[in-house]
Design a binder for these strands. Structure first.
Lengths: 141, 141
DNA sequence: TAAATTTGTTTGCTCATACAAATATAACGG
DNA sequence: CCGTTATATTTGTATGAGCAAACAAATTTA
């Protein structure tokens, strides 16, 4: 009945999928002690020492204030620190942060394995597709 | 560089899409004065007078506590009320709530039109697909 | 170089959703 | 019929994300 209509609503289904996969991701990243998004931020920081918050926001597609809050938490755990440079806040990973790299990679692998057993190759294709769709939807404004 | 990896992560892309489409949906439903999810709950209540909270949770794929909170808000606006029946809380739409039916339908149509102009027919197909994927992912647990 | 504008970040507040524990009612087994 | 278990809801609390306004530094304009 009504189900049928809801199923065709992208707002509805995209958010449901978000909740479902978030739960899986939180489970997978639990052993790292980080939320999946925080772990992704840390991964981005591994790649470029002294990356700015703006860049992090662009990579993660998060608002500036959200990035600030994530960094606060990671800094409180002593996994990274920021050095203010003019109006930029540059992010550096600490040794303790660097030490998590392996673990985070494992968590990520585990997450992808976990949904790959159900979705197969299609999981990756779907993900790329969703990325494209988001780009298109954001473009129009 | 790192982007490439993130794009293949379903956690990452599904949540980004969720944020993008949520913004569109909030815009579309703004004139109703309701959040999209609250509007959907009301739609479900239109369909079945005296629907239980449990049923609403199943239709909307939301946790019981979330449904309770949504109903509190809608009841505060006098759009519906609940009548306790044993351990059930049955939901009835008020006249004021019923009066919103047209508006909500328009908001919904507007949302779908809005993303259909970019995604075309594919939008609906994608939505159904995401629904299926969520079902599969939830099954394994 | 002083004022105006732009850009990057932070702060205060709010929202949507969830989990876990508490509560209340119903159902079942003896 | 009583005690135990199962089910539905509520309450307290937490988290992730965002907006809007504030702030600070840099860039442009005059």
């Amino acid at each position: 009945m009504l189900d049928i209509y809801f199923k065709e609503c992208l707002y509805f289904t995209a958010n449901r999928l978000g909740r479902v996969i978030t739960k899986m991701a939180e489970d997978a990243f639990a052993i790292s002690g980080l939320s999946p998004t925080a772990a992704f931020l840390l991964m981005a920081a591994y790649e470029k020492d002294g990356i700015s918050q703006k860049e992090l926001g662009q990579i993660l597609h998060l608002q500036p204030s959200t990035v600030t809050r994530l960094i606060e938490k990671l800094a409180a755990k002593n996994l990274l620190y920021n050095r203010v440079d003019g109006r930029l806040s540059l992010i550096y990973v600490t040794d303790k942060g660097r030490a998590l790299e392996q673990t985070i990679q494992q968590c990520w692998d585990q997450l992808r394995e976990r949904y790959a057993t159900i979705l197969g190759e299609e999981g990756d294709a779907l993900s790329l597709h969703l990325y494209e769709v988001s780009n298109q939807l954001e473009k129009i404004e």
